[in-house]
Design a protein around this nucleic acid. Sequence first.
RNA 1: GGCGCUAUCGUCUAGGGGUUAGGACGUGAGAUUCUCAAUCUUAAAACCCGGGUUCGAUUCCCGGUAGCGCUACCA
Length: 489
Amino acid sequence: MPDSTPTGPIPRVRFAPSPTGFLHVGSARTFIFNWLYARHNHGTMILRIDDTDVERNTDASVQSIFEGLRWLGLDWDEEYRQSERLALHRRQAEAIFARGLAYRDFTPAHSTGNGQQSSVQGAWLCNPGMRELSREESDRRAAAGEPFALRYRVPRGEGRALRFRDGVYGEQSKAADEVEDFALLRSDAMPTYHLASCVDDADLRISHIIRGQDHLTNTFKHLLIYEGLGAEAPLFAHLPLLVAPDGSKLSKRKHGPVVSVTTYRDAGFLPDGFVNFLCLLGWSPKNDIELLNYGKLVDAFTLEGVNRSNAVVNFTEQDPFDPKAVWLNAEHIRSLPVDLLSGMIRPFLVKAGFDPAPEKIAAVTPLIRERIKLLRDAVSAADFFFVNQLAPYDPVELIPKNGDADLARRVLETAERILTTTAFDHDSLNKALREAATSLGLKAGPMFQPIRVAVCGRKNAPPLFETMVVLGSHVCLERIRKAIGSLHQ
RNA sequence: GGCGCUAUCGUCUAGGGGUUAGGACGUGAGAUUCUCAAUCUUAAAACCCGGGUUCGAUUCCCGGUAGCGCUACCA
């Protein structure tokens, strides 16, 4: 429910990924929280591709981000490319420089860190000499074509404290003396992340910046940039990070495909299940309700529900998916109408090499819906419905516990006889086969196992009668006769 | 090293000056069923350590420890 008493203008939030790889689960969660915040408060969701790092950006990555977001089914209202806004970034850097809040640093790139430097107990603050360069000398060297980076002149020696109130972490403050003179412009005149991000956020009138906690300490620099811009700072809310079971930050390089959104999609997660899972990592509706669809998430989402400690995504070498994610997905699968679910299962069957008619899938879906946790499980749960030839199985499987081959053969021969004369519907099959069990002196278990294995090629399968009805009498009889044959060998 | 943030079952979390510290996943046991699954019942499982404040701290404060983040002309 939207807040009944909005305290300010309509919120404008943004998701600003840098396209350096596939869409990461952590990024996806950041998008989702922004989206939820926007939708809950009837605000505006903005997608901004932060592609200023030309070295590392790829078009494939941009495509991956769009593809991932499209799969999640989340929309946005405005879209921007940071690379198209370079002129603005440079103009604003100039403005900050003109106000005396930045200076040119002619130190060659990558040379900080060695040699003498100005520091407070080991922390680098600025390159010696550069901050104090006179305007005349600075202009002269720049005019002579000497390359320089533009650095923010962080207020120093004034005992100034930088403060803001984080929407999640509360009051934050840091001494300006502890903040280094960070770069605004690189020596190739390209804006840094800090500059570009703040200039754009100010220009796009972003009201709330909801982003990963790894930016919490960067925020102090950003406050300074807003100040240099003469712009009012937005409200910040930082999100706890998603980490691996060993506590390390989820990374593409270290953890590979398990952190890619497409891995979840390809395994057969429903967008709803995946989103539900991600939301429960670092956020809670605080009412013990965990199964939430998009609508409920939008209603329930508030920044107050966001927690402050990192959340572990519980994956292993053997199993890339957090058991809770899998469980939630199974729950979402079960709550899906059959026609929708069967439409979603189809691509997985096709990919496995089957060519199933939609009606057939629709008939099979109710039989496997409670037996699959991921959509891809449909292949192994229902393959025998779609093959012409059952995969070879051990005839021993046909023999029920405490029985022998002779018993299995008698059961199957009885079944064969009955099936040729019985109407092929659930109730008729149920009645006839149970009567046959009684006359053979058997309980249901030993009676049905040989038939199930003959018809499905395995011991574990959906309920027998429904399965046989979907398979049809012809296929069932053929498979039973084949099973009888295998028992004679 | 400096600065910042964090700390409740294996994991995700609720809670909060006095509670049998709640829920969920997963795990064990049982029930039910034609198998499996689903479902139901049930069990084991946690307040990082130390000091303070207090009649009483898991909760508030301080210190320690640990983890994470930032400390780049990466984002």
